[in-house]
Design a protein around this nucleic acid. Structure first.
Length: 430
RNA sequence: UCCUCGGUAGCUCAAUCGGCAGAGCGGGUGGCUGUUAACCACUAGGUUGGGGGUUCGAGUCCCUCCCGGGGAGCCA
Protein backbone atom coordinates (compact mmCIF):
# COMPACT_ATOMS: atom_id res chain seq x y z
CA UNK A 1 0.00 0.00 0.00
CA UNK A 2 1.44 3.34 -1.02
CA UNK A 3 1.85 6.05 1.64
CA UNK A 4 0.95 9.39 0.09
CA UNK A 5 0.50 12.97 1.22
CA UNK A 6 -2.91 14.62 1.08
CA UNK A 7 -1.67 17.43 -1.18
CA UNK A 8 -1.07 14.79 -3.87
CA UNK A 9 -4.44 13.08 -3.47
CA UNK A 10 -5.77 14.13 -6.89
CA UNK A 11 -3.11 11.97 -8.56
CA UNK A 12 -4.50 8.85 -6.92
CA UNK A 13 -8.14 8.91 -7.93
CA UNK A 14 -9.78 5.46 -7.57
CA UNK A 15 -6.59 3.98 -6.15
CA UNK A 16 -5.92 2.36 -2.78
CA UNK A 17 -3.63 4.54 -0.68
CA UNK A 18 -2.38 5.00 2.86
CA UNK A 19 -2.60 8.33 4.72
CA UNK A 20 -0.73 8.94 7.98
CA UNK A 21 -1.84 11.83 10.10
CA UNK A 22 -3.91 13.29 12.91
CA UNK A 23 -7.66 13.55 13.52
CA UNK A 24 -8.70 17.12 12.74
CA UNK A 25 -12.36 16.53 13.54
CA UNK A 26 -14.91 13.76 13.30
CA UNK A 27 -18.65 13.61 12.69
CA UNK A 28 -21.18 10.87 12.50
CA UNK A 29 -24.62 10.48 11.05
CA UNK A 30 -25.95 7.12 12.03
CA UNK A 31 -24.52 4.61 9.64
CA UNK A 32 -22.00 6.94 8.00
CA UNK A 33 -19.00 8.23 9.92
CA UNK A 34 -16.56 10.90 8.86
CA UNK A 35 -13.01 11.54 9.95
CA UNK A 36 -11.20 14.69 8.89
CA UNK A 37 -7.56 13.71 8.82
CA UNK A 38 -4.67 16.12 8.38
CA UNK A 39 -1.10 15.18 7.56
CA UNK A 40 0.65 18.54 7.43
CA UNK A 41 0.06 19.00 3.70
CA UNK A 42 -3.73 19.15 3.77
CA UNK A 43 -6.95 17.83 5.22
CA UNK A 44 -9.12 15.14 3.71
CA UNK A 45 -12.37 13.52 4.75
CA UNK A 46 -12.31 9.80 5.34
CA UNK A 47 -15.60 7.91 5.41
CA UNK A 48 -16.79 4.65 6.88
CA UNK A 49 -20.28 3.49 5.98
CA UNK A 50 -22.26 0.42 6.80
CA UNK A 51 -25.78 -0.69 5.96
CA UNK A 52 -26.31 -2.39 9.29
CA UNK A 53 -24.49 -0.03 11.62
CA UNK A 54 -22.03 -2.77 12.43
CA UNK A 55 -18.91 -1.85 10.51
CA UNK A 56 -15.83 -3.27 12.27
CA UNK A 57 -14.22 0.18 12.18
CA UNK A 58 -17.10 1.88 14.02
CA UNK A 59 -15.72 0.84 17.40
CA UNK A 60 -12.35 2.34 16.56
CA UNK A 61 -14.06 5.44 15.21
CA UNK A 62 -15.83 5.96 18.52
CA UNK A 63 -12.48 5.99 20.33
CA UNK A 64 -11.04 8.76 18.15
CA UNK A 65 -10.50 12.21 19.63
CA UNK A 66 -9.18 15.42 18.17
CA UNK A 67 -5.46 15.12 17.27
CA UNK A 68 -5.28 11.37 17.81
CA UNK A 69 -2.59 9.93 15.53
CA UNK A 70 -3.78 7.36 13.01
CA UNK A 71 -2.94 5.54 9.80
CA UNK A 72 -5.78 5.02 7.32
CA UNK A 73 -5.99 2.94 4.17
CA UNK A 74 -8.67 3.13 1.57
CA UNK A 75 -9.79 4.10 -1.89
CA UNK A 76 -9.63 7.71 -3.12
CA UNK A 77 -12.95 8.93 -4.49
CA UNK A 78 -13.98 12.17 -6.08
CA UNK A 79 -17.12 13.42 -4.30
CA UNK A 80 -18.74 16.83 -4.40
CA UNK A 81 -20.02 16.39 -0.85
CA UNK A 82 -16.49 16.13 0.53
CA UNK A 83 -15.01 19.46 1.71
CA UNK A 84 -11.94 19.16 -0.53
CA UNK A 85 -13.69 17.45 -3.44
CA UNK A 86 -11.98 14.15 -2.62
CA UNK A 87 -12.54 11.62 0.11
CA UNK A 88 -11.12 8.35 1.26
CA UNK A 89 -13.38 5.31 1.74
CA UNK A 90 -11.43 3.48 4.37
CA UNK A 91 -11.28 -0.21 5.18
CA UNK A 92 -8.33 -0.09 7.57
CA UNK A 93 -7.47 2.09 10.53
CA UNK A 94 -4.45 1.83 12.80
CA UNK A 95 -4.54 3.96 15.93
CA UNK A 96 -1.08 5.05 17.05
CA UNK A 97 -2.29 7.09 20.00
CA UNK A 98 -5.57 8.39 21.35
CA UNK A 99 -5.04 12.05 22.30
CA UNK A 100 -6.64 13.03 25.61
CA UNK A 101 -8.25 16.45 26.04
CA UNK A 102 -6.55 18.38 23.24
CA UNK A 103 -6.79 21.96 24.50
CA UNK A 104 -7.51 23.74 21.22
CA UNK A 105 -11.09 23.06 20.18
CA UNK A 106 -12.77 23.98 16.90
CA UNK A 107 -14.42 26.95 18.64
CA UNK A 108 -12.98 30.31 19.59
CA UNK A 109 -10.00 30.92 21.81
CA UNK A 110 -8.24 34.05 22.97
CA UNK A 111 -4.77 34.92 21.70
CA UNK A 112 -3.11 34.63 25.15
CA UNK A 113 -4.50 31.12 25.51
CA UNK A 114 -3.36 30.16 22.04
CA UNK A 115 0.09 31.70 22.56
CA UNK A 116 0.56 29.51 25.63
CA UNK A 117 -0.23 26.55 23.42
CA UNK A 118 1.83 27.79 20.49
CA UNK A 119 3.38 24.35 20.06
CA UNK A 120 -0.11 23.01 19.31
CA UNK A 121 -1.58 26.13 17.72
CA UNK A 122 0.80 25.58 14.78
CA UNK A 123 -1.51 22.74 13.72
CA UNK A 124 -4.46 25.08 13.20
CA UNK A 125 -5.41 26.10 9.67
CA UNK A 126 -4.63 29.80 9.84
CA UNK A 127 -1.33 29.42 11.62
CA UNK A 128 -0.42 26.71 9.17
CA UNK A 129 -1.24 29.04 6.27
CA UNK A 130 0.80 31.93 7.72
CA UNK A 131 3.86 29.77 8.20
CA UNK A 132 3.54 28.31 4.71
CA UNK A 133 3.59 31.86 3.38
CA UNK A 134 6.57 32.71 5.57
CA UNK A 135 8.43 29.74 4.10
CA UNK A 136 7.52 30.89 0.58
CA UNK A 137 8.66 34.45 1.32
CA UNK A 138 12.01 33.20 2.59
CA UNK A 139 12.42 30.99 -0.46
CA UNK A 140 11.52 33.86 -2.78
CA UNK A 141 14.11 36.10 -1.11
CA UNK A 142 16.85 33.51 -1.48
CA UNK A 143 15.90 32.86 -5.10
CA UNK A 144 15.89 36.60 -5.78
CA UNK A 145 19.41 37.20 -4.51
CA UNK A 146 20.89 33.92 -5.73
CA UNK A 147 19.40 34.60 -9.15
CA UNK A 148 21.11 37.98 -9.30
CA UNK A 149 24.54 36.65 -8.44
CA UNK A 150 24.57 37.69 -4.79
CA UNK A 151 26.63 35.50 -2.48
CA UNK A 152 25.15 34.30 0.79
CA UNK A 153 27.42 35.28 3.68
CA UNK A 154 26.57 33.98 7.13
CA UNK A 155 27.51 36.72 9.56
CA UNK A 156 28.10 35.94 13.24
CA UNK A 157 25.35 35.80 15.83
CA UNK A 158 27.79 36.34 18.72
CA UNK A 159 29.47 39.70 18.42
CA UNK A 160 32.03 41.47 20.57
CA UNK A 161 30.32 44.84 20.75
CA UNK A 162 27.39 46.93 19.74
CA UNK A 163 27.10 47.49 16.01
CA UNK A 164 25.40 50.80 16.54
CA UNK A 165 26.12 51.59 20.13
CA UNK A 166 22.58 52.88 20.44
CA UNK A 167 20.19 50.02 20.95
CA UNK A 168 19.98 47.59 23.82
CA UNK A 169 21.64 44.26 23.23
CA UNK A 170 21.30 40.87 24.82
CA UNK A 171 24.48 40.19 26.70
CA UNK A 172 25.98 36.76 27.24
CA UNK A 173 29.18 35.24 28.60
CA UNK A 174 31.85 34.35 26.08
CA UNK A 175 34.37 32.48 28.23
CA UNK A 176 36.12 35.25 30.15
CA UNK A 177 34.66 38.13 28.22
CA UNK A 178 31.22 39.44 27.31
CA UNK A 179 29.53 38.92 23.99
CA UNK A 180 26.29 40.23 22.53
CA UNK A 181 23.68 38.69 20.29
CA UNK A 182 23.79 40.39 16.91
CA UNK A 183 21.34 43.07 15.97
CA UNK A 184 22.54 43.25 12.37
CA UNK A 185 25.01 41.58 10.05
CA UNK A 186 25.60 44.78 8.17
CA UNK A 187 29.06 45.77 9.36
CA UNK A 188 30.40 42.30 8.59
CA UNK A 189 28.73 42.37 5.22
CA UNK A 190 30.50 45.60 4.36
CA UNK A 191 33.64 43.48 4.64
CA UNK A 192 32.28 40.54 2.64
CA UNK A 193 30.94 42.90 -0.04
CA UNK A 194 34.48 44.15 -0.60
CA UNK A 195 35.49 40.52 -1.14
CA UNK A 196 32.53 39.33 -3.23
CA UNK A 197 31.04 42.48 -4.77
CA UNK A 198 27.43 41.75 -3.85
CA UNK A 199 26.39 39.72 -0.85
CA UNK A 200 23.52 39.06 1.51
CA UNK A 201 23.12 37.59 4.93
CA UNK A 202 19.94 36.05 6.28
CA UNK A 203 19.47 35.14 9.86
CA UNK A 204 18.05 35.92 13.26
CA UNK A 205 18.78 39.23 14.95
CA UNK A 206 18.12 40.29 18.52
CA UNK A 207 17.02 43.46 20.23
CA UNK A 208 16.66 43.75 23.98
CA UNK A 209 14.35 46.74 23.77
CA UNK A 210 11.32 46.63 25.97
CA UNK A 211 8.96 47.09 23.08
CA UNK A 212 5.44 45.87 23.54
CA UNK A 213 3.79 46.55 20.22
CA UNK A 214 2.31 44.59 17.35
CA UNK A 215 5.42 45.28 15.27
CA UNK A 216 8.20 44.13 17.57
CA UNK A 217 9.77 40.85 18.54
CA UNK A 218 12.89 40.38 20.65
CA UNK A 219 14.20 37.87 18.10
CA UNK A 220 13.45 38.43 14.45
CA UNK A 221 14.80 37.50 11.05
CA UNK A 222 16.35 39.89 8.64
CA UNK A 223 17.80 39.65 5.15
CA UNK A 224 20.55 42.18 4.49
CA UNK A 225 22.07 42.72 1.05
CA UNK A 226 25.21 44.84 0.68
CA UNK A 227 26.57 45.98 -2.68
CA UNK A 228 29.98 47.50 -3.39
CA UNK A 229 29.85 50.60 -5.61
CA UNK A 230 26.07 50.91 -5.24
CA UNK A 231 24.62 54.35 -4.47
CA UNK A 232 21.39 55.21 -2.69
CA UNK A 233 19.29 55.07 -5.86
CA UNK A 234 20.72 51.65 -6.76
CA UNK A 235 19.78 50.21 -3.42
CA UNK A 236 16.27 51.69 -3.57
CA UNK A 237 15.85 50.04 -6.94
CA UNK A 238 17.03 46.72 -5.50
CA UNK A 239 14.63 46.98 -2.57
CA UNK A 240 11.70 47.68 -4.87
CA UNK A 241 12.55 44.69 -7.05
CA UNK A 242 12.86 42.47 -3.99
CA UNK A 243 9.48 43.46 -2.58
CA UNK A 244 7.81 43.02 -5.96
CA UNK A 245 9.40 39.59 -6.37
CA UNK A 246 8.22 38.46 -2.93
CA UNK A 247 4.65 39.55 -3.62
CA UNK A 248 4.64 38.01 -7.08
CA UNK A 249 5.81 34.65 -5.76
CA UNK A 250 3.32 34.57 -2.89
CA UNK A 251 0.44 35.52 -5.19
CA UNK A 252 1.53 32.79 -7.59
CA UNK A 253 2.17 29.99 -5.09
CA UNK A 254 0.04 30.67 -2.01
CA UNK A 255 -3.44 31.46 -3.27
CA UNK A 256 -4.85 28.66 -1.11
CA UNK A 257 -3.21 30.03 2.03
CA UNK A 258 -4.26 33.61 1.23
CA UNK A 259 -7.84 32.34 0.88
CA UNK A 260 -7.68 30.63 4.27
CA UNK A 261 -6.50 33.94 5.75
CA UNK A 262 -9.24 35.80 3.84
CA UNK A 263 -6.57 38.18 2.55
CA UNK A 264 -7.91 40.62 -0.05
CA UNK A 265 -5.06 40.38 -2.54
CA UNK A 266 -5.99 43.41 -4.66
CA UNK A 267 -3.81 45.86 -2.70
CA UNK A 268 -0.87 43.50 -3.25
CA UNK A 269 -1.64 42.96 -6.93
CA UNK A 270 -1.74 46.73 -7.49
CA UNK A 271 1.78 47.38 -6.22
CA UNK A 272 3.93 48.73 -9.03
CA UNK A 273 7.40 50.08 -9.51
CA UNK A 274 8.58 52.73 -8.85
CA UNK A 275 7.30 53.30 -5.34
CA UNK A 276 6.56 56.87 -4.33
CA UNK A 277 9.81 58.27 -3.00
CA UNK A 278 9.82 61.33 -0.77
CA UNK A 279 12.47 63.13 1.19
CA UNK A 280 12.26 63.32 4.96
CA UNK A 281 11.63 67.11 4.71
CA UNK A 282 8.57 66.53 2.54
CA UNK A 283 7.39 63.62 4.65
CA UNK A 284 7.39 65.83 7.75
CA UNK A 285 5.38 68.52 5.95
CA UNK A 286 2.96 65.93 4.62
CA UNK A 287 2.50 64.49 8.11
CA UNK A 288 1.93 67.95 9.58
CA UNK A 289 -0.76 68.61 6.95
CA UNK A 290 -2.45 65.38 8.02
CA UNK A 291 -2.49 66.51 11.63
CA UNK A 292 0.65 64.94 13.04
CA UNK A 293 2.56 66.78 15.76
CA UNK A 294 5.90 65.69 14.36
CA UNK A 295 8.68 68.30 14.29
CA UNK A 296 11.59 68.38 11.88
CA UNK A 297 14.35 66.34 13.50
CA UNK A 298 12.03 63.81 15.15
CA UNK A 299 12.21 60.19 14.12
CA UNK A 300 8.97 58.63 12.91
CA UNK A 301 6.98 56.80 15.56
CA UNK A 302 4.40 54.14 14.84
CA UNK A 303 1.60 56.68 14.35
CA UNK A 304 3.66 58.55 11.72
CA UNK A 305 4.50 55.37 9.84
CA UNK A 306 0.87 54.32 9.89
CA UNK A 307 -0.22 57.73 8.62
CA UNK A 308 2.34 57.70 5.78
CA UNK A 309 1.33 54.22 4.69
CA UNK A 310 -2.30 55.32 4.53
CA UNK A 311 -1.53 58.24 2.21
CA UNK A 312 -0.14 55.99 -0.53
CA UNK A 313 -1.36 52.74 -2.07
CA UNK A 314 2.16 51.50 -2.73
CA UNK A 315 4.90 51.09 -0.17
CA UNK A 316 6.65 54.45 0.30
CA UNK A 317 10.37 55.25 0.28
CA UNK A 318 11.49 58.02 2.60
CA UNK A 319 15.04 59.31 2.08
CA UNK A 320 17.47 61.98 3.30
CA UNK A 321 16.95 61.79 7.05
CA UNK A 322 18.52 64.12 9.58
CA UNK A 323 21.91 62.63 10.42
CA UNK A 324 21.34 62.86 14.15
CA UNK A 325 18.48 60.35 14.17
CA UNK A 326 20.40 57.77 12.14
CA UNK A 327 23.39 55.52 12.69
CA UNK A 328 27.02 56.69 12.62
CA UNK A 329 27.92 54.89 9.37
CA UNK A 330 25.39 56.66 7.16
CA UNK A 331 26.84 58.67 4.26
CA UNK A 332 26.04 62.39 4.54
CA UNK A 333 24.42 64.15 1.60
CA UNK A 334 27.01 66.33 -0.23
CA UNK A 335 24.56 69.21 -0.64
CA UNK A 336 23.04 69.02 2.84
CA UNK A 337 25.61 67.58 5.26
CA UNK A 338 22.99 67.55 8.04
CA UNK A 339 21.14 64.85 6.07
CA UNK A 340 22.17 61.28 5.35
CA UNK A 341 21.64 59.13 2.26
CA UNK A 342 19.40 56.65 4.03
CA UNK A 343 16.13 55.07 2.97
CA UNK A 344 13.25 53.56 4.88
CA UNK A 345 10.60 51.67 2.99
CA UNK A 346 7.25 51.81 4.72
CA UNK A 347 4.87 49.03 3.77
CA UNK A 348 1.34 49.84 2.70
CA UNK A 349 -1.82 49.17 4.75
CA UNK A 350 -0.31 50.39 8.02
CA UNK A 351 2.46 47.83 8.44
CA UNK A 352 5.26 50.28 9.10
CA UNK A 353 8.91 50.16 8.19
CA UNK A 354 9.98 46.95 6.48
CA UNK A 355 13.26 48.15 4.97
CA UNK A 356 15.93 50.38 6.46
CA UNK A 357 19.18 51.07 4.73
CA UNK A 358 21.23 53.41 2.61
CA UNK A 359 24.66 54.44 1.53
CA UNK A 360 27.57 53.90 3.93
CA UNK A 361 30.42 56.23 4.72
CA UNK A 362 33.47 55.20 2.71
CA UNK A 363 35.87 58.04 3.49
CA UNK A 364 38.39 57.08 6.16
CA UNK A 365 38.63 60.44 7.89
CA UNK A 366 34.88 60.98 7.98
CA UNK A 367 34.27 57.54 9.47
CA UNK A 368 36.91 58.09 12.15
CA UNK A 369 35.32 61.41 12.99
CA UNK A 370 31.83 59.87 13.27
CA UNK A 371 33.05 57.09 15.54
CA UNK A 372 34.41 59.79 17.84
CA UNK A 373 31.24 61.89 17.62
CA UNK A 374 29.06 58.91 18.56
CA UNK A 375 31.43 57.98 21.45
CA UNK A 376 32.06 54.50 20.10
CA UNK A 377 35.06 52.48 21.28
CA UNK A 378 37.48 52.79 18.39
CA UNK A 379 39.35 49.57 19.16
CA UNK A 380 36.17 47.56 18.51
CA UNK A 381 35.90 49.12 15.06
CA UNK A 382 39.53 48.83 13.87
CA UNK A 383 38.65 46.09 11.41
CA UNK A 384 35.73 48.13 10.13
CA UNK A 385 37.95 51.18 9.71
CA UNK A 386 40.42 48.97 7.80
CA UNK A 387 37.83 48.59 5.05
CA UNK A 388 38.26 52.32 4.38
CA UNK A 389 42.04 51.97 4.20
CA UNK A 390 42.33 49.25 1.59
CA UNK A 391 40.51 50.11 -1.59
CA UNK A 392 37.48 51.86 -0.15
CA UNK A 393 34.51 52.38 -2.45
CA UNK A 394 31.01 53.81 -2.06
CA UNK A 395 28.64 51.02 -1.07
CA UNK A 396 25.08 50.57 0.05
CA UNK A 397 22.78 48.02 1.55
CA UNK A 398 19.60 47.51 3.50
CA UNK A 399 17.82 45.18 5.88
CA UNK A 400 14.37 43.73 5.28
CA UNK A 401 12.49 42.47 8.32
CA UNK A 402 10.87 39.12 7.59
CA UNK A 403 8.19 39.15 10.26
CA UNK A 404 6.80 42.54 9.29
CA UNK A 405 6.83 41.49 5.66
CA UNK A 406 4.93 38.30 6.45
CA UNK A 407 2.46 40.21 8.63
CA UNK A 408 1.86 42.66 5.79
CA UNK A 409 1.47 40.04 3.05
CA UNK A 410 -0.89 38.01 5.27
CA UNK A 411 -2.53 41.15 6.68
CA UNK A 412 -2.11 40.01 10.28
CA UNK A 413 -2.70 42.29 13.22
CA UNK A 414 0.45 41.24 15.05
CA UNK A 415 3.89 39.94 14.06
CA UNK A 416 3.79 37.29 16.78
CA UNK A 417 1.96 34.90 14.46
CA UNK A 418 4.53 35.17 11.66
CA UNK A 419 7.21 32.99 13.28
CA UNK A 420 6.73 29.51 14.77
CA UNK A 421 7.89 30.48 18.26
CA UNK A 422 7.90 34.25 18.80
CA UNK A 423 10.12 35.75 21.48
CA UNK A 424 8.03 38.46 23.09
CA UNK A 425 8.72 40.91 25.88
CA UNK A 426 9.10 38.83 29.08
CA UNK A 427 7.71 35.76 27.31
CA UNK A 428 10.03 32.98 26.26
CA UNK A 429 7.70 29.97 26.59
CA UNK A 430 7.07 27.71 24.77
C1' U B 1 8.74 52.63 32.41
C1' C B 2 3.87 55.23 31.61
C1' C B 3 -1.46 55.26 30.08
C1' U B 4 -5.64 52.10 29.48
C1' C B 5 -8.80 47.75 29.57
C1' G B 6 -9.40 43.03 31.56
C1' G B 7 -8.96 38.18 34.94
C1' U B 8 -16.05 34.03 36.55
C1' A B 9 -16.41 25.98 34.57
C1' G B 10 -11.06 22.94 30.32
C1' C B 11 -12.29 27.15 26.41
C1' U B 12 -15.33 31.69 24.91
C1' C B 13 -18.40 34.64 27.64
C1' A B 14 -23.09 36.33 30.75
C1' A B 15 -24.72 37.56 35.75
C1' U B 16 -29.62 44.41 36.23
C1' C B 17 -28.97 48.81 42.01
C1' G B 18 -24.47 44.92 46.34
C1' G B 19 -29.24 39.90 47.06
C1' C B 20 -30.01 31.85 44.62
C1' A B 21 -23.15 31.00 40.15
C1' G B 22 -25.47 30.82 34.31
C1' A B 23 -25.06 29.63 28.78
C1' G B 24 -22.57 27.86 24.38
C1' C B 25 -18.48 24.95 23.01
C1' G B 26 -15.33 20.98 24.69
C1' G B 27 -15.73 16.05 27.97
C1' G B 28 -19.15 11.73 29.14
C1' U B 29 -23.80 8.77 27.83
C1' G B 30 -27.55 7.74 24.20
C1' G B 31 -29.83 8.76 19.25
C1' C B 32 -29.55 9.86 13.97
C1' U B 33 -28.13 6.70 6.41
C1' G B 34 -23.83 12.17 3.66
C1' U B 35 -21.93 15.10 7.75
C1' U B 36 -19.39 20.20 6.41
C1' A B 37 -17.06 24.37 13.35
C1' A B 38 -23.09 18.63 11.82
C1' C B 39 -27.49 18.05 14.69
C1' C B 40 -30.94 16.28 18.93
C1' A B 41 -31.55 14.57 24.17
C1' C B 42 -29.42 13.74 28.85
C1' U B 43 -25.14 14.43 32.10
C1' A B 44 -20.71 15.77 35.03
C1' G B 45 -18.01 20.17 35.63
C1' G B 46 -16.82 26.50 40.21
C1' U B 47 -11.37 28.47 46.08
C1' U B 48 -15.36 34.14 40.57
C1' G B 49 -6.47 35.53 39.84
C1' G B 50 -4.05 36.00 45.39
C1' G B 51 -4.36 38.70 50.04
C1' G B 52 -6.80 42.34 53.02
C1' G B 53 -11.06 45.66 53.96
C1' U B 54 -16.39 47.84 53.92
C1' U B 55 -21.31 45.39 54.55
C1' C B 56 -26.67 41.66 57.42
C1' G B 57 -24.85 40.08 52.61
C1' A B 58 -19.34 41.04 47.68
C1' G B 59 -18.21 38.01 41.13
C1' U B 60 -20.03 43.19 41.78
C1' C B 61 -17.54 48.53 46.12
C1' C B 62 -12.38 50.04 48.36
C1' C B 63 -6.90 48.95 49.10
C1' U B 64 -2.87 45.98 47.54
C1' C B 65 -0.15 42.40 44.83
C1' C B 66 0.12 39.02 40.57
C1' C B 67 -1.01 37.84 35.48
C1' G B 68 -2.69 39.16 30.55
C1' G B 69 -4.58 42.39 26.24
C1' G B 70 -4.29 47.22 23.67
C1' G B 71 -1.48 51.75 23.11
C1' A B 72 2.77 55.08 24.03
C1' G B 73 7.83 55.44 24.76
C1' C B 74 11.96 52.73 22.89
C1' C B 75 13.03 50.79 17.91
C1' A B 76 20.15 50.48 11.31
Amino acid sequence: MKWIYIEDIANYKDQEVEIRGWVYNKRSSGKVRFILIRDGTGIIQATISSEKNDHPLFKKFDLLTQESSIILRGRVREDKRAPSGYELNIDHMEIIQIAKDYPITPKEHSTPFLMEHRHLWLRSKKQHAVLQIRAEIIKSIRDFFDGRGFRLMDTPVLTPSACEGTTTLFETKYFDQNAYLTQSGQLYNEATAMAFGKVYCFGPTFRAEKSKTRRHLMEFWMVEPEVAFALLEDIIDLGEDLILHIIEQVLKNNQKQLDILERDTKPLENIKKPFPCIRYDDAVNLLKEKGSKIQWGDDFGSPEETLLSQIFDNPVCVTHFPAKIKAFYMQPDDERPDLVLGVDVIASEGYGEIIGGGQRIYDLKLLEQKIKEYNLPREAYEWYIDLRKYGTVPHSGFGLGIERTVAWVCKLKHVRETIPFPRLLYKIYP
